[in-house]
Design a protein around this nucleic acid. Structure first.
Lengths: 203, 203
DNA sequence: TTTGAAATTGAACCCGGTACGCTTTATGCT
DNA sequence: AGCATAAAGCGTACCGGGTTCAATTTCAAA
């Protein structure tokens, strides 16, 4: 394997492109920057850029992909799928203060500032929904599993939106993380027990 | 108002475009047809086509837009939001055998055959999620309402997918409608009572 | 019948993304 | 070391969705 000089250069190029992209998007807004400009700023041809990133959206979103399906399939024995996901997101919320706030924040701002990127995020969540449904299925075509997968991803999307919104409004990372943790519990309680008690019966 | 000759011509043109589009898409597939071809087939300039339909997707999807928010805001007094939505979709399922199966089916086939259109459908559902959340909000920033809106739209998306899938597999409209009605009840029961009983506790 | 606004058009243009054929460069083999 | 090969990069031309703009036609109202 030899540590691969070639491999190293590839990763380096990929990072140069991604960094140039994020910098330009942060400066002038996603929709105001063309992929040609990104390529030029990264010192690379447009064709090369698209060899590393399938679409313009991927320049921002590729490094943010989650996968909930894995959390379910690799959960410790004795834990329910919902329990595993709840634990995971609770842990994420509590670790929030540890991550690099600077880079996270600019990425969030870029995403929140562009309808196209927000749509991309939603599409990514849709993709996760199918994977999660497959992971939850107990028998082929299990309707309950599909409904559960759909509801979980919808809930996570909502929580992520709230989290992003607070960050872009200037909330400190620690506080946003704390509130996220609380909301994770609220949301999963609702998933487990339903809305009848907290909503459906009123009015 | 004079019945407006102008207005009539406009609607007529719009219909000519939409029909030409659906016909071509059904014949050769959405991605294999260019908007130029649609415009030509409709006897109209590309620029005119885009005066009527904002995007290529809209050629197929504009006539399918629902709005759940209205169902909630205009529900009869004494009925909960969840109750109103359940009743609406149950009614839709039972009326299914009444609609024009031919045209519905080709549209469904066109949509199901194109990833781009499926993505468009999902985006439309996202849009409805925000409207529904606004309709459900009891106070500004009501988290429960947002979660509920997210889960409802996710559920409806799933049920719609199941319905479409059965239709494209050749199920008769009446049967697909019947199963949809059953699934609507299952799904809304889960929304109201949660997954703990039917899923979360096992394994 | 004139006048003005709305509908329609062709043509040029922008941008994301692809196809193709060519050069360069790391690497594995001898 | 030297060489063949495959991978990485590049330039250019192209495609299709979508917009801009100035020019023209068409309805309708006064």
């Amino acid at each position: 394997m030899m540590a691969g000089l070639r491999e190293r250069k590839k990763e380096q190029t990929r990072r140069r492109i991604a960094e140039a992209a994020l910098r330009l998007f942060a400066e002038r807004g996603y929709d105001e920057v063309t992929v040609n400009e990104v390529a030029e700023a990264a010192g690379v041809a447009k064709v090369t850029l698209f060899a590393y990133f399938a679409t313009k959206e991927c320049l921002v979103l590729d490094e943010v992909k989650e996968d909930m399906a894995r959390i379910v399939t690799e959960r410790p024995p004795g834990l329910s799928p919902l329990g595993a996901l709840r634990a995971h997101y609770r842990a994420f919320a509590r670790e929030a203060p540890g991550v690099d706030a600077e880079s996270l924040l600019t990425r969030v701002r870029v995403i929140s500032g562009s309808p196209a990127l927000l749509a991309g995020v939603h599409q990514a969540h849709i993709g996760q929904r199918y994977e999660l449904a497959a992971a939850l299925e107990r028998e082929p075509g299990d309707l309950i599993a599909r409904l559960l997968a759909a509801q979980i991803t919808a809930v996570i999307t909502t929580l992520q939106e709230q989290f992003f919104h607070r960050l872009t409004c200037g909330a400190p990372l620690a506080e946003a993380g704390q509130r996220l943790a609380d909301e994770v519990d609220i949301a999963f309680d609702l998933l487990e027990r339903g809305f009848a008690a907290s909503y459906g019966d009123k009015s």
